[in-house]
Design a protein around this nucleic acid. Sequence first.
DNA 1: GCACGCTTTGAAAGCGCTGTCAATACCTTA
DNA 2: TAAGGTATTGACAGCGCTTTCAAAGCGTGC
Lengths: 337, 337
Amino acid sequence: MPDSVTLSHVAREAGVSPSTVSRVINGTARVAPEKERAVYEAIRRLGYRPNLFAQGLARGKSMSVGVMTQDVASPYYSEVIKGIEQGLDGSPYYPIFASGHWRPDTEREAFKVLSGRKIDALIVMGGLLPDAELLEMAAHLPTVVIGRVVPGLERDCLYADQVQGAYEATRHLIELGHRRIAHIAGPLYQQDARERLEGYRRALTDANLNFDPRLVVEGDYHEPSGLMAVEALLSRGALFTAIFSSNDQMAYGARLALYRRGIQVPGEISLVGFDDVPISSYTTPPLTTVAQPTLEFGREAAKAILAKLEGRPYTLPLLANRLIIRESTALLRQGVR
Amino acid sequence: MPDSVTLSHVAREAGVSPSTVSRVINGTARVAPEKERAVYEAIRRLGYRPNLFAQGLARGKSMSVGVMTQDVASPYYSEVIKGIEQGLDGSPYYPIFASGHWRPDTEREAFKVLSGRKIDALIVMGGLLPDAELLEMAAHLPTVVIGRVVPGLERDCLYADQVQGAYEATRHLIELGHRRIAHIAGPLYQQDARERLEGYRRALTDANLNFDPRLVVEGDYHEPSGLMAVEALLSRGALFTAIFSSNDQMAYGARLALYRRGIQVPGEISLVGFDDVPISSYTTPPLTTVAQPTLEFGREAAKAILAKLEGRPYTLPLLANRLIIRESTALLRQGVR
DNA sequence: GCACGCTTTGAAAGCGCTGTCAATACCTTA
DNA sequence: TAAGGTATTGACAGCGCTTTCAAAGCGTGC
């Protein structure tokens, strides 16, 4: 036991009652300056730390906010997590993480664990849990949802328009002169993947280019699927001069496939990703991509949660995806392919 | 409150005493089969979940293990974290994370938070906290340290030999014919950075190459510093045909610097990293690097902690770094530079 | 048929803290 | 100087659970 110094010890040491110690710790009531000093002194001398469990039990709140992620090791999630940490920093609240791994069961299980830990609030990132269950949770607990819009909970959803982001990415390629643009989609059972596909499609339509299903391959948001997508495209003889990948990780895979074939980026094929994961500015060439405000997502979610917890009014800001033009896209060179 | 169903509710519902319910939940004592069934039934019907706080308070343990990281968003740490999650999965223990951000004060603060949360065990990853303080913690709490050797705590340190890893990386370059090998070091106040530098140095010496301090630049383990290191090297006219970077992230920076200058990798300059971060197999070219068994680190640490917690004997395995040869290194081409 | 030992069960005492309530001490004001 | 307020303080009852401890119930052997 690192410290079994309890509040009563402090009280005795300071020559006051436990109640008084509690009061000075929490600032719940006025205490004579001298006693206050004595208490602080005793705390310091004994190295006292309040027992969170006892506090939690006594006041029925845990001072912790549950954070439901899908995969801590993904660059996207870890950025958001970082943002949450930053947003919670300085507050008395502490994040408790749980991973759903994109499996509804695991996710449900994770929620149970969180609820057993008596979290005071909840931040949910994506996930596959039915809206209804999320609504149910939100009815009990201050909740903020990141990267997903739950009908009936719109005001508590932090979301950047994926359709528009994908639209801009695609339009960027079109403006560069590309006409045959392939798309590596994300797993289409995920909302964001569908929306990005939709944005791609709309941009095409708006430019009077027709949508060719043979230019679309579905991946799983991980690198290997990007590589395989390009292989598939190439081996089936698809003609294209640009690729819009539904996320950066698959874009890396695509990039590697092209590299292996000796195809220049952006010389022969332009490549655009989505997410603006931290290393994307350090790939060769640096990747043109749509930046999701991940860090802000985390920070804003945390701030909103704190506001809710403290009963302050708060409106989530509208965060937008931004196209970041780097060096993986270039004007279509006539005559190539 | 998601559930304010308490143990007494269950007891009443099942027609037994709270003690009995507690007993069936924890399997602490024999209970008549019929009552046991009734209790389970009541639990199910009421959707009862034990209050972790009350449990923690009553039995003086929290069923959670504190994990001290430095930066959740770094690819290295997030892999280890993933490993820890995996290792703890299926056990009743749960990880609570804290980030030290490589600042001893923050780290100390984080430890305080963890101790307030009454963690039952501790996993420390790296960090800058003096050995003495770590020893102090370990005296109170079952502890495992990852990526660092603390004298007096060797048996609880999970560590792969950095010197050897760096040695192999450098020797690999030497075997490819390189003679002038630059090194982008990590921040030298960190032990691992110093050791990797040492490995580089030894490999040179063993090959009768002399160590040239002008070929070494200190970075900070982040991408930009790798880029700047190469810029510095190049602009001061240093001659080299290979670079051994102390971690992958800086290697990316280096790669970009070379790309900008139009220098081929591995055609003109070979590049080796360290860590084998997940995307390193998807860079162009895929990066030759030293793989740290990060996932295993996490998993083994978790297993060791569980064993300690349950009083089982356990010895940490010896995990080794492995050189992964990919495509960023090649035979020295005569006549170049 | 009765004393004995074992098993199953409930009552009750905390775990360390908060927050209410009542008591005390100290000021004011008339 | 007495009555009425107000500021501080301590006692104490929980928060939900675990864990003794002792009582009750049971079967056994003589």
